[in-house]
């Protein structure tokens, strides 16, 4: 369990953290998600003790670690660019924390072999980091961080420097690893897909503040504001309001559209639009529209719905929101 209370951090006039308070439950895998400059990395590094807070406190498992150096915080940290010890073999890299702690040689050897097997680097003991691929280096860095049995594992954009395929593999692998090891994990990312894929809790940061924190489904379905909604998942504008592209219903019949819309609480209304393009993306079909107001929007429909509508470019169609996140917000029973 990590508790950050009222964290402030400025670099000159730039406020990296502007009063951040967050609870990270024990055993969870929490993603700190936000655009660059949102303060997510600063928050993570403050938890690690790699940055000193200007104000506020950090408590890890009941122990106030504010002002305590990283060495004594019981953390494992994984850097975006691996931070591999280049002059050491894989074995020595992973053993580093245990060697510093002067553990018996036999214990170190056993633990290192065990970890290398977990991260799938068995047989690479005597290689140097330069002889590993990016993905392998990051798995080595993870084993190194886990070797000291950290109370919390902190990952700073761990897959950011890897190419797309390796990234997808590694995050699935991280998810499985977390299900086995159960160490409280915080992961910083700017990639919403990564956050949704890996984390069981997401905190969305913007301009040094936390916009919303919660389960991925809650953030996706009931975003607290437009920023969270547009940062997590895709959005389309309907009469100036944000709606998920797959929550938009297309109808050829005008009367039917208006009748259905009247039943939706807090609806943004019906828009009349011209079809620009119909793109088939496997199961989904993306329909690109230009509204009367000359606003552009993209709508996602299922293949079956697209076939039933049989839309061609140039035709007129009526678009409405099936439901809106705003409606969720105004309903106190669904408030977060």
């Amino acid at each position: 369990m990590i508790t950050v209370t009222g964290a402030h951090k400025s670099y000159g006039t730039f406020k990296a953290l502007d009063g951040v308070s967050v609870d990270i439950p024990a055993g969870s895998l929490t993603a700190l998600l936000g655009p660059s400059g949102s303060g997510k990395s600063t928050l993570l590094r403050s938890i690690a003790g790699l940055e000193d807070l200007d104000g506020g406190s950090v408590v890890i498992n009941g122990k106030d670690v504010t002002g305590i150096p990283p060495q004594q915080r019981g953390i494992g940290f994984v850097f975006q660019h691996y931070a591999a010890f280049k002059h050491m073999t894989v074995r020595d890299n992973v053993a580093f924390g245990l060697t510093i702690r002067k553990r018996p040689k036999a214990e170190i050897a056993r633990k290192v072999d065990e970890l290398l097997e977990i991260v799938g680097l068995d047989g690479f003991q005597h290689r140097y980091p330069a002889q590993l691929s990016g993905g392998q280096r990051q798995r080595m860095a993870l084993a190194r961080a886990l070797a000291v049995d950290p109370e919390v594992l902190l990952l700073d954009e761990p897959f950011g420097a890897l190419d797309a395929q390796v990234r997808a593999d590694l995050r699935r692998w991280l998810r499985r690893l977390h299900d086995e090891v159960h160490v409280t994990t915080v992961l910083v990312t700017h990639d919403q897909e990564e956050a949704l894929d890996v984390a069981d809790r997401i905190a969305v940061l913007n301009k040094g503040r936390i916009e919303q924190i919660g389960d991925p489904e809650v953030l996706y379905d009931r975003p607290a504001n437009d920023f969270v909604m547009s940062f997590l998942g895709q959005v389309a504008h309907v009469n100036g309001r944000l709606v998920r592209p797959h929550d938009i219903v297309l109808t050829r019949d005008r009367n039917e559209a208006y009748a259905a819309d009247a039943a939706v609480k807090g609806s943004p209304g019906v828009i009349t639009a011209r079809v620009d393009r119909v793109v088939r993306l496997g199961f989904e079909v993306r329909v690109e529209l230009t509204a009367d107001s000359s606003e552009q929007l993209e709508v996602q429909v299922t293949r079956a719905a697209a076939e039933a509508l049989a839309l061609d470019p140039g035709e007129t169609v009526y678009a409405r929101a099936a439901h809106t996140p705003d409606a969720w917000e105004t309903d106190p029973a669904l408030a977060i």
Binding site: A48, Q71, F85, K86, I100, A147, V148
Partner: peptide
């Protein structure tokens, strides 16, 4: 400074 920071998180003091 990445490697040095990594060493610090692994428990090494400045001298080590």
């Amino acid at each position: 400074t990445d490697q040095e920071q990594a060493a610090a998180t692994l428990g090494a003091n400045g001298w080590q």
